[in-house]
């Protein structure tokens, strides 16, 4: 009897936690299907009205923002992973003086508050002619993407046993070939999870995107979303904002759910230990 009561209480608690976690997103979906006056009534199961979605998709800026975010995130992930593999090999598999200092530097960089470099980086970006272009974001996102990918890949590469490398060395394999022909395929799953996390971080970044871009055509999704406003001062744009929120979030949630095991292992490799 006491056991049953405990099970019921725990189950109820779990339901509360699930409700609290999911409800805000559910409410965003529900609101995205309401337009006009329907938006102002609290209705949990409304009729599906796609006006907001149609408005968004016919408005060129929103699609352009999504494309921009995708270009930036894919470039950031590709570049960071290439740099991270060679760096992780050096830091995880080679013994050399200065290794500890480099590791400490990377750890320090991962704690770096972005606001600190804003004014300095602004000068660099101007000087490189990257202001108000997607290039400014690809460069500036390296500040969080590189330390993270290098750190996590280093901890993954360390787990690979040394026998493989010894055997390859016997056969006269060079370091470069070792990295790309032996370690690269072995690291593929780790690269996928690390890349996905770096992708999400770039997709969501706001401060640099708000500061280094100016025109609608180079804005990314978070900035576009934060700056959406109604066509008049009295029109509440929340229906459109919720539709936009759903469009940019659903793919992320699907990716995360499909790769959930990898993501958890990537997160813990970065933070635990």
């Amino acid at each position: 009897m006491k056991r049953l009561a405990k099970t019921v209480a725990l189950t109820l608690l779990k339901i509360v936690v699930v409700f609290y976690t999911i409800f805000p997103f559910y409410w965003a979906i529900v609101s995205s299907f309401k337009s006009g006056a329907a938006l102002f009534s609290v209705d949990f199961f409304p009729a599906i009205d796609l006006t907001n979605y149609r408005d968004l998709l016919t408005n060129g800026n929103f699609l352009r923002n999504i494309l921009n975010s995708a270009i930036v995130a894919v470039s950031v992930v590709t570049l960071s992973l290439i740099f991270a593999i060679t760096s992780a090999y050096a830091l995880g598999k080679m013994k050399f003086r200065g290794r500890g200092i480099v590791l400490a530097g990377i750890l320090g960089a991962s704690m770096f508050p972005q606001i600190v470099v804003l004014s300095g980086l602004f000068g660099t970006i101007r000087w490189l002619g990257l202001y108000n272009s997607l290039g400014s974001l690809v460069l500036s996102y390296m500040i969080f993407s590189l330390p993270f990918t290098v750190w996590v890949m280093t901890s993954f590469i360390r787990q690979i046993p040394a026998e493989l490398e010894d055997a390859a060395r016997m056969d006269g394999c060079s370091t470069w070939a070792m990295i790309w022909q032996i370690y690269f395929p072995l690291l593929a799953p780790a690269l996928a999870s690390t890349g996905l996390l770096a992708f999400i971080a770039s997709w969501n970044e706001f401060l640099f995107a708000l500061t280094f871009t100016l025109s609608d055509t180079v804005r990314t999704v978070p900035v576009g979303l934060a700056l959406i406003s109604g066509s008049s001062r009295f029109e509440l744009p929340f229906g459109t904002i919720m539709a936009a929120s759903v469009i940019v979030t659903v793919p992320l949630i699907l990716l995360v759910l499909i790769f959930q095991r990898r993501i958890v292992s990537g997160l813990t490799a970065g933070a635990v230990k």
């Binding site: 805000p24 969501n204 979030t249 992320l252």
Partner: peptide, 29 residues
Amino acid sequence: ALRAVMLIPWAIPTVVSAQMWQWMLHDQY
């Protein structure tokens, strides 16, 4: 299943959660 549910708020961009909550916390509607 619970662990999967936990991943949802984490995957939502901060600007999106801010907008979602701003709407939920709206004074009139």
